[in-house]
Nucleic acid binder design. Sequence first.
DNA 1: TAAAAACTTTACCTTAACGTAAACTTCATG
DNA 2: CATGAAGTTTACGTTAAGGTAAAGTTTTTA
Lengths: 129, 129
Amino acid sequence: MIESQKTYSISDLAKEFEVTTRSIRFYEDQSLIKPSRRGQTRIYSPQDRVRLKLILRGKRLGFSLAETRRLFDLYDADRSSVQQLHTMLSLIDEKKEHLQQQMEDITVVLMELSSVETRCQSELKDLIK
Amino acid sequence: MIESQKTYSISDLAKEFEVTTRSIRFYEDQSLIKPSRRGQTRIYSPQDRVRLKLILRGKRLGFSLAETRRLFDLYDADRSSVQQLHTMLSLIDEKKEHLQQQMEDITVVLMELSSVETRCQSELKDLIK
DNA sequence: TAAAAACTTTACCTTAACGTAAACTTCATG
DNA sequence: CATGAAGTTTACGTTAAGGTAAAGTTTTTA
């Protein structure tokens, strides 16, 4: 099975994810993606594409690019020493706690918004009727 | 019941929420809080304190100060015209969608982190044993 | 009452995450 | 083959959210 080694140009990805090519190059500058090259031209693999997707998900969560890179480092990290594994586990825990706090915050805000929404709707009924 | 009309100084709040006085003044500058004054000195009411708490919660969610102010405006808004109410409802919907997207993102990342965590733990066992 | 502590304003500095413009190269195609 | 589209680098500009420093006022306290 010689599977079609799919690749993407920078503008392919820019369109797909609705970001500028400037941004994508900037992420590379910050060592978040490392596309290969044909001559000068960047060529993105499916893995690079996944990376970009992860970067953007991070952004939606309010991660800085530096934080996202640390997460990438977690995945890629040297898993050979006990030290390393412990460091990694505590980093993971830190992130998890942070995300759980965010979850709680979101839940609260969503409830508040729903309550305002309901009040608005009923006031709207009153005004129209 | 003459309840103790509690107030706070800027550094009271700074300590409680672990932010700098500079930040608190900056939020005022951006019209997010409006403490009263005794002479020049700022005096914060319990309501002001709640506002600050909300600002910080917004920050944890990655809201910009401008966004948070828009949310405040939603709460305080003129609820008299049908127009207004419709605008408000669509803003609320927008926010809700955004937050729901964030929830999904967080859920996914949490699961991924847990999976990495499990792998780390088992590798740790192998190394130690 | 004098000195320290806490408050104030004004103003310039910093960092992250790009936007924008200039000037150049490579490639497809009418 | 020239021209236009897409790619590249370099470099300066911009915005948000404060940090930091200077210079002054007010309040507390020894």
